[in-house]
Design a protein around this nucleic acid. Structure first.
Lengths: 210, 210
DNA sequence: GTCTATACTTTGATAGAC
DNA sequence: GTCTATCAAAGTATAGAC
């Protein structure tokens, strides 16, 4: 029952089709997971035909893999780039708080995609290869914060007897668990873990020079 | 081309069919994920007909849900039951090490299933409901270890100025991150995080009275 | 309670007009 | 570059014999 546009789509500019497919696919993966994701659903939600999907992507796995990798690498780059700025001119405690909350929200963005990867053996294998090639993984975050703590330690702001690598691991993993709980049990669930802020605060008290 | 058993199966006792279906389904979910799991594959690997699946289970979602829930609750019960025994007569350090490694391997068992849950929106919703009803979640582990540390603190084996809840959170989350990295990047991947033992050891040094 | 055979539905992917 | 229409394959689920 379209009254005025018999020849072209219902408002989507033709050149946005590829981007619409990518964005919609990511959205659907995050919302409903990979198990029942169909090309038909992607096409409908993106206001596009299924054929267009196969014009832009070789097949369904190629589309998924592209979306997944991008959905991990993009937030990662943004986050990594923001790190130096976060610490600048702050106390150790404030820097850790700021960094920790950012780390938690990074994981909150990425976890739905990581879970989707685990749902398909082929995808998982390719993803692991790619991540290993790039040398990525949680150790990156641990190393970054460990380096930061080391610097502050030499500057006398962190207690000399603290093992910065262990402290960094505790810190990073608390952020991760916090994000994972929300991911697994849903945002509406009442949080029964100590708040991330309080845990980071307590860790800061342990490592920082008073 | 069966030469000797025209009427009955190739060795599976008829009464084991239901169990075989359950075990095989879990195995396949852990191995290849939920996205491409078919009733045909389950039947083949379990050496059973597809029809038998539908005799024992209402439909595919019902089968999956049963398997999933069992695969989380069973290890959880076993693990929870083993906890008191782990701490008995040990130093704080040894108890934490023992508990931590057990916690890591608990997560290693359960994570593949939790990831599968995230791959299907309907499954995720039912799972979250059930978990919330039962009051489960990572906070259980944190509470248990926090209680343990509190007792040892009153006994003088843990430093009085330690916040046991924060320490427990750090401890539990390190175990979780350790397991998650292996889950996500594969067991063969060279571990680039500090070993869990070393992190737990360092945490124990921080909280235990020398 | 389990099987074989099959009905029905959905899915990924392609052909061809515009 | 995008669409409509269509196909072959794969998927879930059922019927009926034993």
């Amino acid at each position: 029952m379209q009254t005025d546009a018999p020849t072209r789509g219902r408002g989507r500019p033709p050149e946005g089709v590829r981007e619409a497919i990518l964005a919609t696919t990511l959205e659907l993966i995050a919302e409903q997971g990979l198990a029942r994701l169909t090309t038909r659903a992607i096409a409908r939600h993106a206001n596009v035909s299924e054929a267009s999907i196969y014009y832009h992507f070789a097949d369904k796995p190629a589309l998924i893999e592209g979306v997944i990798l991008d959905a991990v690498l993009r937030p990662l780059r943004e986050f990594a780039a923001s790190f130096p700025a976060r610490a600048a001119g702050k106390s150790v405690r404030d820097a850790l708080l700021d960094y920790g909350l950012a780390l938690e929200s990074f994981w909150t963005r990425v976890l739905p995609v990581l879970s989707a990867v685990q749902a398909d053996a082929e995808l998982r294998e390719r993803f692991q290869e790619r991540i290993n090639e790039l040398g990525l993984g949680p150790h990156r975050g641990v190393n970054a914060i460990s380096t930061y703590l080391g610097e502050r330690q030499r500057a006398g702001a962190v207690r000399g007897d603290v093992d910065t690598r262990t402290a960094a691991m505790s810190f990073a993993s608390a952020c991760f668990l916090s994000a994972y709980q929300r991911h697994m049990l849903g945002a509406r669930t009442r949080r029964k873990l100590p708040s991330l802020s309080s845990v980071i605060g307590a860790l800061a008290d342990l490592v920082a020079v008073d």
